[in-house]
Structure formats: C-alpha cells, structure tokens
Design a protein around this nucleic acid. Sequence first.
DNA 1: ATAGACAGCCACTTTACCTCA
DNA 2: TTTGAGGTAAAGTGGCTGTCT
Length: 255
Amino acid sequence: MGDDEEEACKCNTRLGLGIGVDEFTLPKCDRAKKKQVVCLELSIPPHMNREAIDADYRIEGSSSKTTELDKCNIEKKKFNDNNDDSDSNNNNNNNCSRKKLRLTKEQSTLLEESFKFHSTLNPTQKQTLAEKLNLLPRQVEVWFQNRRARTKLKQTEVDCEFLKKCCERLSDENRRLKKEVEELRRSLKLEQQQRQNSLFIQLQKAATLTMCPSCNKFTKVVAATTTTTINSTSTISANNDNKEKEAGAAIDVVT
DNA sequence: ATAGACAGCCACTTTACCTCA
DNA sequence: TTTGAGGTAAAGTGGCTGTCT
C-alpha cells in the first residue's frame, strides 16, 4: 500500500453518495475490509498533487506541444510505475478519460486552415493532420465533426435572420396592399353611390314626363295646376350629356 | 440477392473548463 | 476572494447510411 493510500485511510476526505459497493472508489484499507458504503466520490486521485492538477487544467497558452491525452498517458505511466494495483489503475483511467483537451492556438489555427480547405477529411488527411498536430486521429475527426456542427448552426442562425427580415418585409407589403385595396373599395363605393344618385335624379325627371298619345308630344307635369308642352324631338335627347341641361331647362319651365 | 460487419457522419447530450457578475 | 450561472468546445452516444465481403 502506497503512502497516498495510507493517507487516504487515515484522513478520508471523500464525500460519499451511491448505491452498492464501489470497490474502486474505496481506499484499499476499506476494500480489504469489504466495507459496504454509500458514497459520493469527490476526491482528488492520490497520484495527482495540486501542482499536477493546476498544470493539467491550464494547458492553453502553454508553449508545450504535449496534449492532454499525452499528459494523461504520462500520468498513467507515472501512476503505473508507482502502483501495480490494477483496481487503482482503472480508477486512474476513469479520471483521465474525461479530462478535457484544450487545443493550443497553433493547433486551432492549423485545424481552422485545414477546415477552410476541406470541411471533411479522408483517412490519409486525418492521419497526416493528426501527426502534424501531435493529436490522435480520433481527436482530429471529432474536431472536424464539431466544427461542421458549429458552421451549420451559424448558417442556420444567418438563414433564420434572413427569413425574419423577409417575413417583416412581406408583412409590411401585405399591410400596404390591404390598405390600398381598402381605399380602392371605398372610392369605388363612392363612385357607385354618385352614379346611383344621378340615375335616380334622371329617373325622377323621366317620371314627371308623359307623352300625349294623339300629338306624340311629351308633357311635363310639374304640379297639379301647371303643365307645359315640350316637343319630344327637340327636348328629349338620348344623349346623356344633355340631361343635366334638360334638367335645368325643366326647372325653368316649372317656374 | 441478402445479411452482417464496419466505417463515417450527424444530431443530440454530457462534461470540463472558462468568464463574468 | 469566492461562488454560481451561463457559455463554449471536446468528447460520448446512438442511429442512419453506404460499402464490402
């Protein structure tokens, strides 16, 4: 049992919450006793001191070309050198598997440039790029997948904005056309009303004329008392333009 | 022609890490 | 100085499709 393990047994700084027995998360001393515990693991792996963690968590900006995965492997190697126990090794693997890779600026730039050139990679290109960047081909592949997703998302946002603007423009146009239609309807209605009014007046005038069956002359009956005889050929014109004139004349006659 | 293995991609999700209030 | 929320990006997962045997 290593010193770290001993320390963990003496001073168990773990928070536990779980169901069943998790032998991997138990210190060896507890494992040996097969303690049944409920635990929430919140512990710093014994092989990682504070400096190691801090260094690992701040790769960006570092001039080192070493990747997280490499570091992980280094850590694994270190750990394996110090610990022969396979259970502890598994625990270490679990911790490393989800440590997040932070790409350096150089790596990001090179990946971006390759992406500009071709958004998908064939296996050879992937391998070459991975070697160039000191990354795993899988990491390059994942980066390209995520990059494609980001591009698509951005394009969707752009499209969405464009469609929104189109929609606004069409709504405005629709409102404008509706208004125009409404105005046209109103003026048409007014015109119709005016026509009806003038027709009505003409009809009224026509109703006041009677034709004498014997002499074929129109007689305008103004009132019960006064009548005037008008020559049909001269005063009744088919021409609508003259109707107003006639109406005026009729009024003169009436007086 | 068909079934199964496999690889690659995508959509969605999880997780580690960072920034900022 | 600490802390929690929210954002970002790497990585995990599952489904789909095309290719090969």
